[in-house]
């Protein structure tokens, strides 16, 4: 299988706080990896390092054969191919839904507006809210905003999608509509790295489960093994707390 992301002995510090400790991770094309763990365990920081929203200080991160360094050209290239969805959606409130989506195709890919509009509408239909195209983010519900955010990422036609707790800020009823879109995306073969505590989603979609604690990858296993036969005590404790209520 083609390797699309490799992390080797990645270390990161926020001042004195050692947030990532010797992270090793390989993602192959089409793989769906779900990352979970207690807050402060470094899950978000890890996936934010992959498109360089955070810079790591030691070790190596290679995406599509390009190593992430301070080289801005490489960073730009990698960001074009790696989509990211945030916990707080982070839509641009001064732009309409369709302008949010066409922004990058127009200014990064230099597409004609009409073509960009067509792409945007295709993805809005995919996330099932084409009728909201002319509205502004402030006029949408949380679930709708997150779906627009997914469409905005997809419009750049990335081959890797990073999800940073995409449903944590949503009401229970809206979680489903967002997860449905993500499941559909997974079925189409997108390479996905998802930080989430939605264990139902993980069981449906994941090829690999990763459990992180205190900046380390504590356990990495197939969902079947992870949920039924976890090896470390820390994982067992975490799972018992998250599943038993």
């Amino acid at each position: 299988m083609e390797q699309v992301i490799q992390l080797e002995k990645v270390n990161k510090w926020f001042d004195d706080f050692h947030v990532l400790k010797d992270i090793d991770l390989t993602v192959t094309k089409g793989q769906k990896i779900v990352v979970c763990g207690p807050s402060g365990s470094g899950k978000s920081t890890m996936i934010r390092c992959i498109n360089r929203l955070e810079a790591h200080q030691k070790g190596q991160i290679v995406v599509h054969g390009t190593e992430l360094t301070n080289d801005l050209k490489n960073i730009d290239m990698i960001r074009k191919n790696v989509g990211m969805v945030f916990q707080q959606f982070n839509l641009f409130p001064h732009l309409s839904v369709i302008d949010n989506i066409t922004l990058a195709p127009i200014w990064v890919k230099k597409l004609p507006k009409k073509e960009a509009d067509n792409i945007a509408m295709t993805y809005l239909e995919k996330v099932k809210i084409p009728e909201q195209a002319q509205k502004y983010p402030g006029q949408l519900s949380g679930g709708q905003q997150q779906r627009v955010a997914i469409a905005r990422s997809l419009a750049m036609n990335p081959d890797i999608m990073l999800f940073d707790e995409p449903t944590s800020a949503l009401d229970p009823e809206m979680i489903k509509e967002v997860l449905d879109v993500m499941i559909q995306l997974a079925e189409e073969g997108m390479t996905m790295l998802v930080v989430t505590h939605e264990m139902g989603f993980a069981k449906t979609v994941a090829d690999q489960m990763i459990f992180m604690d205190e900046g380390r990858i504590v356990e990495q296993a197939s969902p079947d093994e992870f949920f039924n036969n976890p090896k470390s005590d820390r994982t067992k404790l975490f799972l018992s707390q998250i599943l038993n209520h």
Binding site: N51, L53, D76, R79, K80, V82, G83, M84, F86, Q88, N90, L91, F92, L103, A104, W107, V108, A149, R152, S153, M156
Partner: peptide, 16 residues
């Protein structure tokens, strides 16, 4: 800061 990050994540350059 999130706005800047979202813009970076879709590949926009600093001046844009």
């Amino acid at each position: 800061k999130c706005q800047r990050e979202a813009a970076q994540a879709i590949g926009l350059k600093a001046n844009f």
